[in-house]
């Protein structure tokens, strides 16, 4: 077994001192693995990522309980500037480029954690992963297509030499072929760079194909975990997340038994 890189021990997150979003989430991420975090909207996946990367702070959120261990040191409630310097970079949901900067300038912002070090080689590396970006390196990011933007924000994160990359819904609103491309690249980054990745996804089928391990979240709790293979085979997961009933036929909403089983999760 590899060493554990990141460990969340029973953390709770509260926004504005009243809204509790995470209620005791524990998970462990092994080095060089891709771990995917599944669950419906509002389950707390994004909040989990933000708790790790420190981005809760500007949104008035706080880890009130539990610990987040990264390489055996506690990082909960640290400022994002400090956490990013430890090599944890989050790629935000919904692709947030710097619209008035060119592609290359966008990528250079990724070097903020190691300001002053040379970055030429990293640019070459990013262009190697995402050849589409090199063609438009002088163009404004505001005018790029959705697929290019997703590549841009991932490339920008790679510039920071992340050890742990937090990807929030990279497939959001992209065409199936582009999604395929993006996931292939995520896999390659993991294999070639040895980057550990936590992947939050709605597209459970895709996510489980490239992930080593998976967690399922509901209502601010982890309700199920397992290796990607075992999750893929799990009848409940197949039904609720992959949209196949046990018999392989289309699922019926009137199925009372299914409702009961679903209830058990919540």
């Amino acid at each position: 077994m590899d060493a554990i890189l990141l460990q969340l021990n029973n953390i709770s997150v509260v926004y504005s001192d009243v809204i509790q979003v995470l209620k005791g989430v524990s998970l462990a991420v092994e080095k060089n693995h891709i771990v995917s975090l599944l669950g419906s909207n509002g389950a707390g996946k994004t909040t989990t990522l933000k708790a790790v990367s420190g981005l809760l702070k500007p949104e008035n959120g706080r880890v009130t309980d539990g610990t987040i261990l990264y390489r055996d040191s506690e990082i909960q409630n640290r400022a994002p500037e400090t956490i990013t310097r430890h090599g944890i970079i989050q790629v935000l949901e919904g692709r947030q480029p710097f619209k008035y900067l060119t592609i290359e300038e966008n990528l250079r912002v990724g070097t903020a954690t190691r300001w002053g070090k040379p970055y030429r080689e990293d640019l070459e590396k990013v262009y190697h992963y995402f050849p589409a970006l090199e063609k438009r390196r002088r163009g404004l990011a505001g005018y790029c297509s959705g697929g290019e933007l997703q590549m841009l924000v991932m490339g920008r994160a790679l510039m920071a030499h992340p050890e742990l990359l937090l990807l929030d819904e990279p497939s959001l609103g992209l065409a199936p072929l582009v999604v395929l491309e993006i996931f292939r690249i995520i896999r390659r980054i993991n294999e070639e760079e040895g980057t550990t990745i936590i992947l939050v996804e709605q597209n459970a089928r895709m996510a489980l194909q490239i992930a080593h391990y998976g967690y399922v979240m509901e209502n601010g709790k982890i309700v199920m975990e397992g290796t990607a293979d075992s999750l893929r085979e799990n009848p409940d997961i197949r039904e609720f997340y992959l949209g196949m009933s046990a018999a392989g036929a289309a699922k019926s909403y009137t199925d009372v038994k299914s409702y009961r089983r679903r209830k058990r999760w919540l």
């Binding site: 990367s53 981005l55 994002p80 990013t84 300038e105 903020a112 300001w115 920071a160």
Partner: peptide, 23 residues
């Protein structure tokens, strides 16, 4: 300059800049 680009990035999208570790 890198610092200049960081400054522009903050003006552009503060949250994204924060996520990349811009101070």
């Amino acid at each position: 300059s890198s610092q200049g680009i960081y400054m522009r990035s903050v003006a552009d999208n503060q949250r994204a800049a924060l996520s990349l570790g811009v101070n």
